[in-house]
Amino acid sequence: MGRLTLSNLIEAAIFLLIAGIFYAFSFEFNQPIEIYIFGATAWPRVVIGFLLLATLGNLWFHYRYGNATQATLGQLEDKADFSEAGTVRRMIAVLLTPFIFAYLLKPIGIYFSAPFFIAAIIWFFGERRWKVILIMTLFIYCVFIGLFLMILNAPLPQGNVSPFYDFSAWVLKLNAQLQGI
């Protein structure tokens, strides 16, 4: 195993899996192009080949030198610290919340789901005073509505499930009335 750690192996496995999936799917569009002899698969397969080489090179590097670093330019990131279970739980929650929000945009719409999303993010970032969470949620929601709905008239997802759709329709109607005034 040399100086390889479990995370090095997982990292390599993920990249090899990505390369494998993309290679396998490249057969789906493996058809000739009349004006170009290399076809549609040549470029992606060359990229996959190099990705494979780089992944193996990276694995060799970790095998030989462990988690050492090299003199590349502009290394901005310090290493992640997941030594505490609480940090891991909170990060999983922070990572999942936007995804759940995005998933719910189609059925529920942004007008109804946004305040819950804003409040959740404020909470996950460590704010525990519920009055502050409430006031800041309202403030950010008003800024968002004011900017995108009232000023820019941006078309945003309204949802397609009742009563959320009705709520979005009410917000839009209110906006139209305010614009009329």
Binding site: F15, I18, F22, P44, V47, I48, F50, L51, A54, T55, G57, N58, F61, A68, T69, Q70, T72, L73, G74, Q75, L76, E77
Partner: peptide, 18 residues
Amino acid sequence: VGARTIWKGWMSVLIGLL
């Protein structure tokens, strides 16, 4: 630029290309 090792720099570019 910006990666912790040169190998990871290449992997970054190649993921973008992919």
